[in-house]
Write a protein that binds this DNA or RNA. Structure first.
Lengths: 123, 123
DNA sequence: TTTATTTGATTACAAGTGTAATCATTAATT
DNA sequence: AATTAATGATTACACTTGTAATCAAATAAA
């Protein structure tokens, strides 16, 4: 399922909290984007058509909710990026960031914790 | 500069080794993709137009080379993914992979090395 | 109940994309 | 020198995307 950039922004707004009405979504996006309400509605329609979200009628309003979960999307997107750009391995990406001085102490701490957890589990 | 999927595949073939002729690129892609020679030529043209690659004439052949370096592209793409999906932090992505049992001992070893290098540098 | 309003559905339209085919130029061959 | 062959440039065309405006249906208001 291909989600376009604009569609993603809408989907992302839905992930924030759902179910939610179109208006709610328009409001959430109003901070970030400068989209006409009609534009958001169009994108909602396209997301429904693609099966990324669904809705239930509540009187004349539709209440939308994701079918595609954020975690699943994160996983396939990051896997796709790693495959395309880093031969499917995660460490080259981290190395890239390290090289560019994009790693902070916090990141290092979290990575260390992840590693020790992993080692506990895989012992 | 927006690089489309198909354009990326061509650019990626060029990164393998350059400068190289259109035919060379067609051959490299022939293993992976099933593209007509004309299709590859079109994509080369679009990449040139976008400023992602350039060429020099060698008789009637053009020899192409990237203007956009792989490392730069890797960095902006992965930064964009992290920003969109993980709040700009790298550890949630690693955590995601860990959770899905996508981390192997090799990855862990490399991550540990990256961390110790980072710590040496930032002491 | 008629009218006004809200909201999703349909339509619009230009730019980008995937996927080539044809045109034109230039180099190689006869 | 004329013809052929190779290769980039131009054109093609349907589908997607960004960005809405208009249409239609249903509900709320008068």
């Amino acid at each position: 399922m291909e989600i376009s950039k604009a569609e993603f922004d809408v989907l992302n707004a839905i992930w924030e909290s759902f179910p939610c009405s179109a208006n709610e979504i328009v409001n959430r996006l109003d901070n970030e984007k400068n989209w006409h309400e009609k534009t958001v509605k169009t994108l909602l329609g396209r997301l429904v058509k693609k099966g990324a979200i669904a809705f239930e009628k509540d009187k004349r309003r539709y209440l939308y909710h994701p079918l595609l979960e954020k975690e699943a999307y994160q996983l396939t997107e990051s896997k796709s990026l790693l495959d395309r750009l880093f031969g499917g391995r995660i460490s080259p990406l981290v190395a890239n960031f390290a090289q560019q001085q994009k790693l902070k102490q916090d990141d290092i701490d979290e990575l260390k914790k992840l590693i020790s957890d992993w080692e506990k589990q895989n012992d």
